[in-house]
Nucleic acid binder design. Structure first.
Lengths: 212, 212, 212, 212
DNA sequence: TATGAATGAGTATTCATTCAT
DNA sequence: GATGAATGAATACTCATTCAT
């Protein structure tokens, strides 16, 4: 068994390296062009892999694109969890939480903007992408809502659940503008990002604390 | 004058009809697929126009796509003005305005969602689309902000300008989710639209009325 | 009959003018491009004639091209006769004749170079052009040969006929290089034209006067 | 070394064979039509290569045409050198040289007439073809002139250089008629080729030996 | 397994020709 | 007769996919 492993490992890592190179090449090409219009020849040259090798791992170009996006979505999901834990750990009041959360979430979305944009475009017609995307989104929505609720119940706010959910939705929507979906800064091309984040936090707080 | 019209109409309407058929066919194909990947053969068949006829009116497939989008953007700009006038006419208090505005703006964006989505995607690399899109966006942003300010100055709110601007941005961003930019309902696929609109209005109001 | 003529003339001259405009436009386009790759739309715009009108006079684009070329070939034939008469009129010795003839023939070929080039290219596959072209060529060949013979018989040269014919062939071939058929001056790009004409005349004279 | 050849040959010859088939097909089509108006589908069918394979070797149809012509021009250049060497080797007097040279040069031009004709047509607008064509022409012109001069200086002829150059030009121009540039036999369609070559040689000799 | 040359269906674009007005 | 908008066949080129080595 040891020998089997010995013999297989190098081969596997060879394969593994080749697989990673094609994924990385496709990823780079997708980010550079902002779309999926790269060719497999591009991937072949850039990733130093034979075209045939791509078809050994993926049944089509589409499957390769999906793999790249799914990999990114998994990473985003992980990053979200880490981000969420970090924010929670350093906050004890609603004010702190909302403000830090908006900052951290904004940063996360910005970091993954390129691929997230592509993932969202594809999600429109590709359930394989829409699924994990929605699942991940739901988890972060749930976590966020729960945490806001924890802070809110301390102050016995009525309609707490509804407000917490709306808050998450509005925060996500607003920050998602940064994914460059929209006319270059539709309605905002000289509004700066810091300003938007600050006011978004304030708005959410005013809303959450209001006793309507 | 009547005779002039008589003589010209048939000639114009023939051409006009053909032009409209190709624009309509392209529009329909774009909306159905959610992208610009239709072929001119599709347009030819669907619109019952010869391929050559398309090139009689447009210098390229791209120009046809642009024409479809520009037509829609012009319509959107007009609709926005009408919508804005209607909302203003029937509101006298900030509460009414925000609530009605969110409703009406949401309806407008929903009505144009398909093409607006395509316009935004193209705006990323096509200045011919980005220009009018941004101009239109800026006008509605300006109008909205001004109106909010009118109501706010009545109550001498500090930071009125910043809050009015942030309000517009956040409303637009939140409603724009409806353009299906995002995982089908990323984080919101069973949250209903009526709920979101109501809470968005409330949030904005709480924010605008807060004395931070 | 007078009235018929009255009524017809203006119409005819209208038609005539239109016909001439399309021929002139086609001619200009052919000369500018150096080939037959113009489009009928070009002719339509340039000549201010409707495309339909072209098909009223010519059964195809090819027929239009032919008409232009045939018109030019007829003009060339006429020019050749005039040129030949002029040269003969002012010369009385072989030396004068050859020298003046080479000059005048060179000038004629140069003047018609553009269309002659096109005519020759088309003659390869179009008998309608090859015919008149060859006929015209034969006449000038005959005239030239005859004239040379007149001068030669004065000096009782043996092989006079053969030499006269060869002289014409060689003069024509050499001058035809000016039609820009050949690598830009294949083998001659800094040899000047005046030199070539002078030496060509000398060579012919030496040959004609030799008693081989 | 043998094994290297063994391993490489099959790979190369497959590719090589395919490349040669497309070049040969294009060549044949060009010669048959006398122009470049063949289609890539024609090449594909005739050469039994996929259209895509053509684009694997050439970046455009134009590049394929160029390759065919350049190949021929290179062959012509080589043939010219061989021809020239052979002629020089077997001649010791001017008479012999001119006569043999005209014969051999005529044969060479005839052999390559079809492609040479196409090359010259393209040279008008394509520097890639005009360059090698002119270079090759200049070399043969130079060689010819030099050789004539060697024979002439023996007889201390005045104006030797000018006469040698003119001789080359006139020989080339006259023989080039055979490239079918000109109305099929413009001025010569029943003049036979043997006659023309003989007289051309005589004319050149008479000229070169004359003491003008 | 790995390779990358070969494949050919698919697409934008052009332009001679037709024909309704 | 005159017009010029409409037609659609034809063609260069691209690229995902296959398969012989």
């Amino acid at each position: 068994m040891a020998s089997t492993t010995m013999t297989r490992k190098p081969l596997q890592s060879r394969s593994q390296a080749s697989l990673e190179r094609m994924l990385a090449a496709a990823r780079a090409l997708m980010l550079e062009a902002g779309n999926e219009d790269f060719t497999l020849i591009d991937v072949s040259k850039r990733g130093n892999v034979a075209i045939g090798s791509i078809y050994l791992r993926f049944e089509s170009k589409d499957a390769l694109v999906r793999a790249v996006l799914l990999e990114e979505l998994a990473q985003i999901a992980e990053d979200e969890l880490v981000m969420f834990g970090t924010v929670k750990a350093k906050t004890s009041a609603l004010e702190d939480f909302i403000s830090n959360y908006v900052d951290a979430y904004a940063e996360l979305l910005q970091r993954h903007a390129g691929m997230l944009r592509l993932a969202m475009l594809r999600a429109v017609f590709d359930p394989v992408i829409a699924g994990p995307g929605a699942a991940s989104a739901e988890r972060i929505a749930h976590n966020t809502t729960e945490t806001i609720l924890e802070y809110l119940t301390q102050s016995e706010s009525p309609r707490a659940i509804e407000k917490a959910e709306a808050t998450y939705l509005i925060i996500f929507s607003t920050l998602a503008r940064e994914l460059r979906l929209g006319f270059t800064g539709h309605s905002a091309h000289h509004v700066d990002w810091a300003f938007l984040k600050r006011e978004l936090a304030r708005m959410c707080l005013a809303y959450l604390k209001s006793d309507d």
